[in-house]
Computed example of a mutant assay.
Amino acid sequence: MSAISVALAAVLYQDRSTPDIVKLGKGVASVDARPVGDLAGSDLEPRVLADPIGPKPTPSERAIGSGDASFYGNELAGNRTASGEIFDPERLTAAHRTLPLGSRVRVTNSRNSESVVVRINDRGPFHGNRVIDLSTAAARTIGLIRSGTGRVSLALLVN
């Protein structure tokens, strides 16, 4: 089982220390829609925004279970996560006990079928029977802000 985890971690690992730069015609652009020149030397991670049109199709998703989700927000803003990055409640990230850091997971709210793709960058949750802790932005996207917790299903995105 650990060999599979190591292989999965290697496949899913992506350096997120700087925003993604993509070719655009004969030039380049930041995925963050900021001038590339403004990003020189920047240690900001790209913000992944919810797609207002709907989720993009993925090559493959593997259901990995369901359970209760909660979210954490401003009280931990600025702290380092298990991945070493600074926690920003407005990024689409989450904490999971065992998935490799860098894994991408589709979290679907069982009550309203809203879903969001998050990147695992921290460990937890370590209280109750919760299966995942979402950032504020992720919880807002799937409608968990008002209730604070909710039943969700999880699917691991694989390439």
Rank of each mutant, 00 (worst) to 15 (best):
S42A: 07
S2N: 15
L8E: 10
S153C: 06
S66R: 06
A77W: 02
S103G: 14
D20T: 11
R80M: 03
L24N: 11
P59V: 10
G41A: 06
P57G: 05
S103T: 13
N159D: 11
A77C: 01
A9F: 13
E85G: 00
K23W: 11
G65A: 01
P100I: 00
S42Y: 04
S83N: 13
T141D: 13
A50F: 12
E85I: 00
S2I: 14
N112D: 13
D43L: 04
V117Y: 09
V152N: 08
D88N: 15
A139M: 00
I132Y: 02
R91H: 01
G37L: 09
A95M: 03
A137C: 00
F71E: 03
A7E: 15
L92I: 02
L154G: 13
N74P: 13
A33W: 12
A155M: 08
R123A: 02
L44S: 15
A94I: 05
A40I: 12
N121A: 01
L157V: 15
P125E: 03
R47M: 07
G128L: 07
D32K: 09
S153I: 03
N74Y: 12
T18P: 01
E75I: 01
G67I: 00
S103P: 14
S115W: 06
T108K: 06
L157I: 15
S103V: 12
S103A: 15
H96R: 04
I132V: 09
I145A: 08
T93E: 04
L12I: 12
N79H: 12
D38G: 07
G73P: 05
T93V: 09
G37Y: 09
P55N: 13
A3D: 12
V105T: 06
P35D: 12
L157Y: 09
R130N: 09
D51H: 14
T18W: 02
V152M: 05
L24Y: 11
G27L: 01
R123T: 02
V48S: 11
N129L: 01
G143Y: 11
P52E: 10
A138D: 05
R47V: 04
L134G: 07
I145Q: 08
D32L: 08
S70G: 11
T58V: 14
Y13D: 08
P52L: 09
P52V: 09
K56A: 15
S103I: 09
N79E: 06
D122V: 00
G148K: 07
T98R: 04
I4E: 11
A69Q: 09
G37D: 10
G27C: 01
P55S: 12
S17K: 12
L99W: 06
G67K: 01
G148E: 10
E45D: 11
G25E: 13
R111T: 13
I53K: 14
E75M: 01
V118F: 00
V28G: 02
Q14R: 11
A33K: 14
H96Y: 06
I64H: 10
D20S: 10
D15V: 00
S113R: 14
V107K: 08
D32G: 07
A7I: 14
H127A: 02
D20I: 09
